[in-house]
Amino acid sequence: MNWIKLIYSLVGVFSLQFILADFLSINGIRPDFVLIYILYIGLHHGSFPSIIFGFFLGLLVDFTGVGSFFGLTSFTYVITGYLSGFLHGKYYKMIPTYFHLIWIGIILFHFFIYSFIRYQDLFETTMTVFWLKWILTSGYTLGFLAIFQMIIPLQQGD
């Protein structure tokens, strides 16, 4: 594992999110490139670096300006980093469909925690809106992940 290379790619991904997030916004929903990066780190290099990167990137994302729940991004990225690390080196040891279903599940779980904390009020009052918000937010990032997956396959680290 080359830490310098990882840090360079981290700067690149953060810049990408910094520049493109607003331009790609649809009805207030934006893709989360940083999350995609953390998933890649977890799958290619294991839990340890993805937890550390997740924590610090989450803090950095929150420092760019958040009205409430400061630290939520770090919290969810750390969980995603840890879970994605379990898939490191597993692609050829398990059925590929399961492998893909698990990382999709991790992304969905990430957004579930994020939405559940950020929109807990909607969860109690208008559950349909909550589920819609969760599905659309997850779906948008998953769409970009599907595109990236074709360029750099998730299982390439194996």
Binding site: Q17, S25, G28, D32, V34, V66, G67, S68, T137
Partner: peptide, 9 residues
């Protein structure tokens, strides 16, 4: 508008 996946601030 921040870098989060939803705009709240």
């Amino acid at each position: 508008k921040g870098l989060h996946s939803n705009i709240t601030s």
